[in-house]
Computed example of a mutant assay.
Amino acid sequence: MDLRTRFTEEMKASMRAGDTARTSTIRMMIAKMKEADIAARPSGVQQVGEEGIVSMLRGMVKSRRESADLYRQGGREELAAKEEAEIAVIESFLPQQMDEAAMQAAVRDAVADTGAASIKDMGKVMAALKAKHAATLDMAKAGPMVKAALGG
């Protein structure tokens, strides 16, 4: 089932269950997706694809993590908890992330495939990782691993 259909089905289920927090978060995700669709129209695309939706969801998670950290620093634990509840809902729609060992293996393979020899080749390795594992690899964690693999 594609993400657009899944959003609709999950929203209906959460509304039936009376889970207002989950319903609110899913509505927010749908609104953000529609916003992305509208932004993509000038380039001739009617709807953002699955990769675009996954990228949008990752951005939403990142934004909420930052907000939760700021709320904690400000002593607003209840708002941080709300942000983390939204993160949990959003992450339930994301593909499963690679574990540490799988990430290491992917980095080793990308270094070997690109023939990277020094830190100057980091861009090529990162591009290969993104092309092959964009949905399941956290690029923020992959960067330091690539740097270490290239001796940086």
Rank of each mutant, 00 (worst) to 15 (best):
V125F: 06
A80Q: 01
K62M: 07
A81L: 15
R41K: 15
M103T: 11
R6M: 01
V54I: 14
K12M: 14
S14M: 09
T136S: 13
G59I: 05
D109N: 13
E51F: 08
Q96H: 11
A102M: 13
E91L: 00
E91A: 02
G123W: 05
K132A: 14
I119M: 07
G52K: 06
Q97H: 04
A117V: 10
R41G: 09
A128Q: 06
T23K: 08
E51N: 13
M60E: 09
M103G: 09
R108V: 09
L79H: 04
G115P: 03
K32E: 15
M29V: 04
Y71D: 15
R64A: 10
L3P: 00
A110L: 03
K34G: 12
L150W: 05
E84N: 12
L150K: 08
M98F: 12
S55I: 07
D138V: 06
A131N: 05
K132I: 02
G143T: 05
F93W: 03
A127D: 12
Q46P: 07
E51V: 08
E35I: 07
A17L: 10
D2E: 12
E50W: 03
E35Q: 14
V111Y: 00
Y71H: 15
M98H: 02
G52A: 09
A101N: 14
G18V: 06
A85R: 09
V146L: 02
S43I: 12
A112K: 15
R72W: 07
D69H: 08
G143D: 01
A40C: 11
D99C: 02
I53F: 00
A101Y: 03
E83D: 14
V146N: 00
E77R: 07
A80E: 04
G143F: 02
K130Y: 05
A88V: 03
A134Q: 12
G49I: 08
D113K: 14
L3S: 02
Q96M: 05
A36C: 05
R4L: 11
R4Y: 06
M139A: 11
D121K: 00
A112D: 09
